[in-house]
C-alpha cells in the first residue's frame, strides 16, 4: 500500500488527472450554459462523437490539426443548432430529443467513419507545449505546464465562462432565462434567442471536447470512442451545481480518481479490478447524494417556453 503513495505515483496521478479532465471540462461547461438557460441537452455524447469524427477526418485529410478543431467546433455547433430547433422552436421534450441526438451522433459518426476512412488509424495529435519559465519548475512544470494546447484551453475556459455568466449582460440574460423565462421575456430578453445561443454554444464546446479526444489526447478515432463521456459531463454539471468552478472541481475529481484506480491496479493493491474501475462512478454518486441540498437548479430547466402561456 505504501508503494502507492510515492512521489512518482502522485505526480503520475496529477498529470493524467489534469490531462483527462479536458474533454469533461469542454463538454460540461458547454452543458452548463445550456442548462443555465433552461435546456437540458442529453445529446452531448452524440455531439462529442460527431466532433471527434469530423476533427479526426479533417485533420487526417488536410494534415492540419487546427482545421480539424474548427471542423469539430462547426459540426458540434450544427448539432447544437439542431437540438435548439427541436427543443426550443418545436418544443419537444428535452430529455427525449437529447437522447435522439445522442443516438444520431453515435450512428452517423460510425457510418461516416466506416465509409470515409475505412479502418482504424492513428494521427499525430497536438504536441505538448511547455510554458516558458513555469514549465521549467521541477515537478510542477512537468505536471502542470507541459500539456497540449487544448488542455490549457479547457482550463482557461473556466474563468472565462465564469466571467461571462456572472459579469456580463449576456450571462445575466442566460441566468434570467433559465430561472424565470416569463420575467425575462417581459423585460425584453429574447428567451428563444438566448436558448438558441447557449445550446449552439454547448454543441460547439461538445464538438471541441470530442476533438480533444481524437486529435489531442488519444489521437485515434473509433466507433463510440467517447464511450458515454458525454453523459458523465451532464452529471458533472449537476455535480458542479451549474457553476463553472463546480464543474472544474467535479471534472478533476472524477479524472483523478480514474487515474488513481489504474495506479491501484498497477501497484498490485488487492482490490478486484472491477471494483477499482467502479471507483470514480461510486464517488460521483456519493458526492451527488451529499451535495444535493445546497444545489440550486435553474428553476426553468427542462421547461418549455411559449410567450403568452404559463
Amino acid at each position: 500500500m505504501g508503494d502507492l503513495f510515492t512521489l512518482p505515483v502522485l505526480l503520475g496521478i496529477i498529470y493524467s488527472g489534469i490531462r483527462f479532465a479536458t474533454p469533461y471540462l469542454f463538454a460540461a461547461i458547454g452543458e452548463t450554459f445550456s442548462q443555465r438557460s433552461g435546456v437540458l441537452n442529453l445529446g452531448v455524447d452524440g455531439m462529442m462523437l460527431m466532433g471527434a469524427y469530423s476533427g479526426f477526418f479533417v485533420a487526417v485529410k488536410t494534415n492540419n490539426l487546427w482545421l480539424g478543431l474548427l471542423a469539430a467546433a462547426l459540426t458540434g455547433g450544427l448539432m447544437g443548432l439542431l437540438m435548439a430547433v427541436i427543443s426550443v422552436t418545436f418544443q419537444a421534450t428535452q430529455g427525449i430529443s437529447g437522447i435522439g441526438l445522442h443516438i444520431l451522433g453515435l450512428g452517423l459518426s460510425t457510418l461516416l467513419f466506416t465509409t470515409t476512412m475505412g479502418g482504424v488509424g492513428t494521427i499525430g495529435g497536438f504536441p505538448p507545449v511547455r510554458i516558458p519559465l513555469l514549465g521549467e519548475i521541477p515537478y510542477i512544470g512537468d505536471i502542470f505546464f507541459n500539456h497540449n494546447i487544448l488542455v490549457y484551453f479547457a482550463f482557461l475556459l473556466v474563468p472565462v465562462s465564469n466571467w461571462i455568466l456572472y459579469k456580463t449582460t449576456f450571462g445575466l440574460q442566460v441566468r434570467a432565462v433559465g430561472q424565470s423565462p416569463e420575467a425575462a421575456d417581459t423585460l425584453g430578453v429574447s428567451v428563444k434567442g438566448i436558448r438558441y445561443i447557449t445550446v449552439t454554444l454547448g454543441g460547439i464546446l461538445a464538438g471541441i471536447a470530442g476533438a480533444s479526444i481524437s486529435i489531442a489526447l488519444i489521437n485515434v478515432f473509433q466507433e463510440n470512442i467517447t464511450n458515454g463521456m458525454g453523459f458523465i459531463a451532464v452529471a458533472l454539471v449537476y455535480f458542479g451545481a451549474w457553476r463553472p468552478t463546480g464543474v472544474l472541481f467535479g471534472s478533476l475529481l472524477f479524472s483523478f480518481v480514474n487515474a488513481l484506480q489504474q495506479w491501484v491496479q498497477l501497484k498490485g493493491i488487492p482490490i478486484p479490478a472491477g471494483m477499482a474501475v467502479m471507483l470514480p462512478y461510486i464517488l460521483t454518486i456519493v458526492v451527488l447524494a451529499f451535495s444535493s441540498r445546497r444545489i440550486s437548479k435553474p428553476a426553468a430547466l427542462t421547461k418549455k417556453f411559449e410567450r403568452g402561456e404559463s
Binding site: P8, L11, G12, Y15, S16, F20, I213, L217, I218, V220, Q222, E223, N224, I225, T226, N227, M229, N258, A259, Q262, W263, Q265, L266, A273, G274, V277, M278
Partner: peptide
Amino acid sequence: IWTGSYSDVTAMATCAQTHIQD
C-alpha cells in the same frame, strides 16, 4: 491493468500512459 470494458478507448489510452509513467 484491466480497464473493465471492451470499448473504452480512453481507459486503454490512460492505461498505457500509466504504465509508461511507471
